[in-house]
């Protein structure tokens, strides 16, 4: 089972990452782009957490009778990264709100058209 799963996790995670990446670069809607970034980043988190996993281990909270723990360091990194992702999402969406107010649209193509007219 482990052998089969050897890279399965990583491959799926890569597909997930690319889904997010695709939304960012292919979709013209600004909100959707931010969502794409969010998906992209969240999937990267899964990659990190996957590498921290150890066969037969438990969460890294020291307790009597347990000896195998998963690696706490990626967890820490991802805690930080989640916060970064939230900050990015908040700022991105705030910008979208302002753009919507200034242009009356949140579609990239329409914004380009308006900018050309300026």
């Amino acid at each position: 089972m482990t052998e089969l799963l050897g890279h399965y996790n990583y491959w799926i995670v890569i597909i997930l990452m690319m889904t997010g990446f695709y939304i960012v670069i292919a979709r013209p809607n600004l909100v959707k782009k931010v969502i794409g970034l969010f998906i992209f980043q969240t999937s990267v988190f899964i990659l990190f957490i996957s590498m921290a996993k150890i066969e037969g281990g438990t969460a890294p909270i020291i307790e009597e009778g347990l000896s195998v723990y998963s690696n706490p360091l990626p967890h820490v990194l991802i805690l930080t990264a989640i916060v970064v992702s939230l900050a990015t999402t908040a700022l991105g969406l705030a910008l979208v709100v302002r753009i919507q107010e200034a242009y009356g649209t949140s579609n990239e193509d329409d914004i380009h058209v308006q900018d050309e007219e300026d």
């Binding site: 990446f21 600004l30 782009k33 970034l37 990015t88 991105g92 910008l95 302002r98 900018d115």
Partner: peptide, 19 residues
């Protein structure tokens, strides 16, 4: 107002880069 779209574009690209 184009400052907003410029910042947004930078945000998207910058975040892709950072990721």
């Amino acid at each position: 107002r184009r400052a907003l779209t410029a910042a947004y574009q930078y945000l998207v690209m910058g975040t892709i880069g950072a990721t």
